[in-house]
Amino acid sequence: MIDVRQLPTPDEPEEALAAVVALRRAADLLERRAVRAALKQGWSWAKIAQALGISKQAAHKRLSDINAQDNPP
C-alpha cells in the first residue's frame, strides 16, 4: 500500500516525476506477469480485459504477445 504521506511534494518535481516513471514501469511489469498467470489459469481475453477495465481489443492489442507457457524467473 502506498502511504500518501510519503509521496514527494509538488515542490520536488524531479523526485516526483522519477517516481511516476518507476511506478509506470512497475505497473507494466506487474500487468504482464498477472496476465500470464491468468492465461495459465485459463482466463479468456474478455475476462482479463474486464479485470483490467479496458476493452478486449485493447487488451489483446497490447498484451497478446504474452505466452502462458513462458516461465519468467
Partner: peptide, 19 residues
C-alpha cells in the same frame, strides 16, 4: 537502482523482480 530509489521515494519497496 534508480528505479528502486524512485519507488522507495513513494514508499514502495518492490522486489528486484519488479523494480
Amino acid at each position: 537502482a534508480q528505479y528502486r530509489e524512485a519507488l522507495r521515494s513513494v514508499g514502495v519497496n518492490a522486489g528486484e523482480h519488479i523494480s
